[in-house]
Simulated assay, not measured.
Amino acid sequence: MRTVRQLIDMSGRRALITGAAGGLGRAMADSLAELGADLLLVDLDGAATPQLAEDLAVRHGIKATPLACDLEDAAQRVALAEKVLVGGGLSVLVNNAAFVGSSDLSGWAEPFEGQTVETWRRALEVNLTAAFHLSQLLIPALRAGPGGSVVNIASIYGEWGPDWSLYEGTAMANPAAYGTSKGGLIQFTRWLATTVAPEVRVNAISPGGVARGQPDSFVERYTARTPLGRMAVEDDFRGAIAYLASDMSAYVTGQVLAIDGGWGAW
């Protein structure tokens, strides 16, 4: 019987994390590095992945490689996979990158009638199609490597509709494309889990709202609607990624782990 310490040890394994320079990406990268995994840190050209890679390598004594890729571009996804496949094995793929738009993006932070097909397509390309494509390209490596695991980062809005009362009086948005793409990612998780088993496990994390300087009125309403009485912080996701990426969850596949403070329990 292996100990918990042995089950969670990821020494000798390599993990690829998309959207690595963002808040959740950094927390998950740091968590897997602490467990001993070597890392491939993927984000847009110009993101802070080189500095992140250097910091993680120094602090945790692992190998961390920054890789630039625009996940909207299928050709760049193929090129990324080729770099990964020639550079060594792969044990974990974390599909974390997300198209979240901005308030000044035309056709995004608009009433439903003003949301455009173009922004819809962009969101689905990054949030869903890229996860499908990278999984397809890298499954052979995950099958060959030890502890093959895909972890998709979904959202509570892939499971539940938005409560519009939370947004009143703010410039915040919740476009249809975001929730739809995350809902698709959850179903893709289940579909892929039954397709690539038993060699590779596929699970998802469904985060609730993460505190990132939202307006006070939104935070107060969100907190009141959440059983644990607060928004999430990045550290709340460390245990989830450590569990799903390691052999701690060796008999878990096709599952969605909600890290939402009880949001979905009402």
Rank of each mutant, 00 (worst) to 15 (best):
E220N: 12
E220F: 03
R221T: 10
R221L: 08
R221K: 15
R221Y: 06
R221N: 11
Y222L: 13
Y222S: 10
Y222F: 14
T223H: 07
T223G: 08
T223V: 12
T223C: 08
T223Y: 07
A224C: 08
A224D: 13
R225H: 08
R225S: 13
R225W: 00
R225E: 12
R225V: 04
R225L: 12
T226I: 08
T226L: 03
T226Y: 07
T226P: 10
P227C: 01
P227T: 08
P227Q: 04
P227Y: 02
L228H: 08
L228D: 08
G229Y: 06
G229N: 07
G229E: 10
G229M: 09
G229F: 04
R230T: 05
R230Y: 07
R230C: 07
A232T: 01
A232C: 11
A232E: 02
A232W: 00
V233N: 07
V233C: 07
E234C: 05
E234L: 12
E234M: 12
E234F: 12
E234I: 06
E234R: 05
D236F: 02
F237L: 03
F237P: 02
F237Q: 01
F237E: 01
R238W: 06
R238M: 05
R238K: 14
R238T: 08
R238Y: 03
G239C: 02
G239K: 00
G239A: 04
G239S: 08
G239P: 09
A240N: 05
A240W: 00
A240V: 05
A240D: 05
A240K: 01
I241D: 02
I241G: 00
I241E: 00
I241M: 09
A242L: 01
A242G: 13
A242E: 12
A242Q: 13
A242W: 00
Y243C: 04
Y243Q: 02
Y243G: 03
L244G: 02
L244E: 01
L244D: 02
A245N: 05
A245V: 06
A245E: 04
S246E: 03
S246Y: 03
S246F: 04
S246V: 03
S246C: 09
S246H: 05
S246M: 04
D247F: 00
D247K: 07
M248L: 15
M248G: 15
M248H: 08
M248D: 03
S249R: 01
S249A: 15
A250Q: 15
A250M: 14
A250E: 15
Y251W: 15
Y251D: 07
Y251C: 12
Y251F: 15
V252S: 14
V252H: 12
V252E: 08
V252Y: 06
T253N: 11
T253K: 04
T253G: 11
G254N: 10
G254D: 06
G254L: 04
Q255G: 13
Q255V: 15
Q255M: 14
Q255C: 13
Q255S: 15
Q255E: 15
